[in-house]
Amino acid sequence: MCHQSVGLVSRAIERKGVPTLSMTSAHSITTSANPPRAAFTDFPLGHTCGPPDRPEEQRSIMHDALALFETMEQPGIVELDYSWPAPWKEEARQPVDHRTPRHDTPQYQNQDDRSAAVAAHGVGVACRPAAPGDIPRC
């Protein structure tokens, strides 16, 4: 879904005359959304820009991706020459619903964040209830 949203945002910005480049690790979704420029990294979802704590590899990936602003001459998806340590695909191909419940109140990473947001914005905003009269419950 994220890849679809990004593809649609990308098309809208490019329509205003600003060139865009989308990273993608979901080739089929990006193909369908059809943004102007995409750089494909064949990585598990959640690691679009590379493996964690590997700044040199991340920098190299981003360097190759951004070069596409200067080298691509027509829309498309370019596959970057990086791979993720195998095997990961067989498990990722299982039709298992990994989604967590889609709560309609703000979802904080931790209690500290929640407290900081409440202090800055008030509980009514930071823990926006789902409907008027609901008790804030984030």
């Binding site: 994220c2 979802l45 959640g46 991340q58």
Partner: peptide, 24 residues
């Protein structure tokens, strides 16, 4: 911070650059 319902944010929480390449 990173929260999402459709992907495992563990790597992104350890190193936000994997989905938010700000240091990169």
């Amino acid at each position: 911070r990173v929260t999402h319902f459709a992907f495992d944010p563990a790597a992104a929480r350890r190193d936000p650059n994997v989905v938010f390449p700000i240091d990169t």
